[in-house]
Simulated assay, not measured.
Amino acid sequence: MRVIPMTMEACLKQLEPADAEELFWLTDVNRAYLRQWLPWLDIVREVKDTAQFIALTIDQHKRRQGTHYGIWYKGRLAGTLGVHSIDWNNRKTSIGYWLGEQFQGKGLMTQAVAAYLDHLVFGEWNLERVAIQAATGNVKSRAIPERLGFQLEGVLRSNEFLYDHFVDHAVYSMLAAEWRGRRSAGMSRSGI
């Protein structure tokens, strides 16, 4: 199990089977909050569904298609962060993330994405490009790539079906040279 430090109180820890109960609990207590922007909540009905998701992420890691991490804050699981898959031919990926409502407003996700980019995407994996997509109305999710200096590339219209309607997605990207330039210029891990 790999751990990536973020702050004295927070870290990224690779998801493992023992996390299923706590991750399900976090999903379940935040179900109404997360439902506005995440399309998969109806298929996560019990701990075994979360355990299957974690098993898929472990398999994804074994196949060199990325890694999913839990975001831990003061010893509690606060959310998750991971890649959808890796296109090794073009050295690119896209990432997704979510945070429980009770953990919002602490800068955790901005710090988590920065640490993930440092250690894995532009570090260990040596990828050229990473993208983040968020529904245009999801101001909190869009704030993460904006704080970190990602470029807004455009909007994909009716890109995702959320239960009973389609939403547009804003598409952001960061290139390896841009990220390294921002980091060497002294950008703090929080993006500020």
Rank of each mutant, 00 (worst) to 15 (best):
I144E: 03
F166H: 15
T93Y: 07
L41T: 08
S188P: 10
N159G: 09
R147E: 11
E178G: 09
A20M: 08
V113H: 08
W72Y: 14
R182D: 00
K48P: 07
K74M: 10
F150L: 14
H119I: 05
E178C: 02
R129P: 04
V113I: 11
K140M: 08
E101K: 15
L56K: 08
V47P: 03
L15S: 00
C11I: 10
H165P: 04
D118K: 14
P145A: 02
G100Q: 04
D49G: 13
I144R: 03
F166T: 14
A51T: 03
K62C: 10
I58C: 12
G107W: 11
L117T: 09
T57H: 06
P39H: 03
F24I: 02
A176M: 11
E146N: 05
A143L: 06
K13N: 05
R183A: 02
R2Y: 09
D164Q: 15
S173I: 12
D19Y: 03
H61R: 08
V44G: 04
L81Q: 05
S141L: 04
E16Q: 14
L23R: 03
P145M: 02
M109L: 09
R45C: 13
G66R: 07
L127C: 06
D164Y: 14
E21Q: 12
E22I: 00
K62E: 15
R142G: 11
V47W: 04
I132K: 00
P145N: 03
S85K: 07
Y163E: 12
L34R: 12
L15V: 15
Y97L: 01
F24E: 02
